[in-house]
Amino acid sequence: MSGGMENRPKLLPHGDRAVDIVFENRISPAINRRVIALDAAIRSGAPEGIINCIPAYRTLTVEYDPMRITYGQVCLFLRGIAMTADLPQQGRLLRIPVLYGGAYGPDLETVAAHAGLSVQETIQRHAEPEYHVYMIGFLPGFPYLGGLDPKLACPRKATPRLRVEGGSVGIAGLQTGIYPEASPGGWNLIGRTPIRLFDADTLSLLSAGDRVKFVPIDAETYRAICETGVWNA
């Protein structure tokens, strides 16, 4: 399906070695899917000199080598492909195990209290939706997830923690996400996953366009996954 005139993306020079394909300025799975469709189309058949793409919420940054292709040729190619790129198949569904609460989710009760829910209801509501991975960024493997139950929205902590452990699952405002590695952070931590989101061998578990579902697990399962490394996502 091609986009009509009214929602045709704009092309903007992003410096002298990239062009941004820019869609409507809002967070929407439908818009993001068009970004991902274009990304896939470009990667499956781009002219020599187009090097790399970075998909984001509503933009695709397309990097080129100006010594191998001209700016005009890049724009011509991108305009053509933007008209014809098909919407992608539904993304992969990955199930991420999470041990909620306790030492691994020190802010679970805060989030529950803020929502006026019990801890159990909070877990249930967080594990209920199928989240859409809009993009990966900020840290290697960090997914920007959409689809959080608005009832669970909770402001960032006033004082960020100096260290949030890798695997921590958090909520900040209307966003939920997973820290792939230890880093300072201000998100409310509600649990932790034992699986790795990024390492040098397998690289990123998740890609833009994937779907994610959180699966509550108990401490024993958490330990077993840590020890065996086995989890059928």
Binding site: H14, G15, D20, N25, A56, T59, M135, Y144
Partner: peptide, 10 residues
């Protein structure tokens, strides 16, 4: 802004 691709030189 909504997060988007960033490159050296920006």
């Amino acid at each position: 802004i909504l997060s988007e691709g960033m490159l050296p030189g920006d």
